[in-house]
């Protein structure tokens, strides 16, 4: 186990949980989302440099925003098609 500060560890776990929660509504299903999310985090498990971990967290936050935008647009487009373009 590489030495990391507990603070960083908490942040990583928090963003992981947040993404996991968002993934429940993923269009291709949670079963598609979860292993991929897990893989993405495990691939970076060996990082032990603080700057690199911070970078990873930033990337996770970026992905979170992307997923939120995906959900929003998907719903907006579906509703627009149903109600505004009869």
């Amino acid at each position: 186990m590489p030495p990391t500060t507990p603070q960083l560890r908490r942040e990583v776990i928090a963003i992981y949980k947040e993404l996991l929660y968002l993934g429940r509504d993923y269009p291709l299903g949670f079963d598609y989302f979860r292993p991929r999310l897990h893989k993405a985090f495990m691939a970076n498990a060996c990082l032990n440099d603080e700057a690199q971990i911070r970078q990873g967290i930033e990337r996770a936050k970026f992905v979170q925003k992307e997923i939120e935008a995906l959900y929003y647009l998907k719903r907006y487009r579906a509703l627009k098609q149903r109600y505004n373009e009869a």
Binding site: A14, E18, Y21, L22, Y71, Y76, K80, N84
Partner: peptide, 15 residues
């Protein structure tokens, strides 16, 4: 109506 705003997502701690 649809274009009023862009709803946010609730974060886990707030939930």
């Amino acid at each position: 109506d649809l274009r009023l705003n862009e709803p946010r997502f609730a974060t886990l701690p707030k939930i």
